[in-house]
Amino acid sequence: MTVLRPVRAGNAFEETVERLLQAIKLGVVPPGGKLPPERELAVRLGISRVTLREAIRALSDAGYLDVRRGRYGGAFVTYRPPEPDAGTARQAVNAMGPGELADALTFRLAVESGAAQVLAASELDAAKRELLLRRLDELNAAGLDDYRRLDTAFHLSIAELTGSGLLAAACADARSRVSDLLNAIPMLQVNLDHAAVQHRAIVDAILAGDPEAAGRAVAEHLEGTAALLRGFLA
């Protein structure tokens, strides 16, 4: 839940919408899932409940949330990523521009490789090791309809387990910049099988306490994703 971090006072409404939208699009709160209670969410974001309600109302009007009243009410996520489509990916890239896309991919490579290196160099207790392995198992067992969300959870968990809020936020931001593109890439079984091997290599390097191997494994994985993306855009 690192994406739901405090916002700056100057643009509280706009940044609250951004934070909530990031959590929704990254699948931190899955389709059909409920946002944290209003009181808790306002404290987490460091805003007033009035500002939070305005942001939730805006996202409800835009079709991302369904606000229900009553004892079992709350703000429920209605957004679902569009079906993978290379044409959608091309549209997203055209909107970004080639320079911005290259910058986003470089940023993601830098922060995620760095996060893996930091975590591999850390003392990992049993709970952290268990969580990392659980995220990997969940991803390996995921169906196509839930793969991207659990892939995001796996990658973000590496940064979150470092204990650095800034690093975790940077990784979430990096993922957000390319999430629409990743969602648009058709999922090929051969690619998913290859990704599973790479994910296992990342986890093995982290658990072995080998920062260099961890950074290299993440870089290889992300470079493969970038190559696949460029292939579908060609």
Rank of each mutant, 00 (worst) to 15 (best):
R69V: 08
R149W: 01
A55R: 03
A116M: 02
M187L: 13
G27S: 15
R135D: 11
A110Y: 08
L124R: 04
A120M: 02
D193L: 15
A86R: 11
D61A: 12
I56C: 10
G73C: 12
D193P: 05
S122Q: 13
R148S: 07
E212P: 10
K128G: 06
R135V: 11
S179D: 14
A141C: 08
E38T: 10
E40I: 09
E123N: 14
A201D: 08
H221Q: 07
P84N: 09
Q198E: 11
F154H: 09
R8V: 14
S179G: 06
G10M: 12
G32M: 05
L222I: 00
S122T: 13
I158T: 05
R216E: 08
A219H: 10
V28R: 14
D125H: 13
R49P: 05
L188I: 15
Q22S: 11
D66G: 07
T16P: 00
Y79V: 02
N11D: 15
A89V: 04
E130C: 08
R44D: 09
A168N: 06
E100R: 14
T2K: 09
A153F: 03
V197R: 13
D204R: 07
A142S: 06
V190H: 09
A195K: 04
C171L: 03
P211D: 07
A205K: 01
T88C: 10
E100L: 15
G70F: 00
A55H: 02
R129Q: 13
A12Q: 08
D210A: 07
L131F: 10
V111R: 02
G46V: 03
Y72N: 12
R19C: 05
Y64N: 07
A184K: 05
S113Y: 04
A58T: 12
Y147H: 07
N94T: 09
R69Y: 09
Q91I: 12
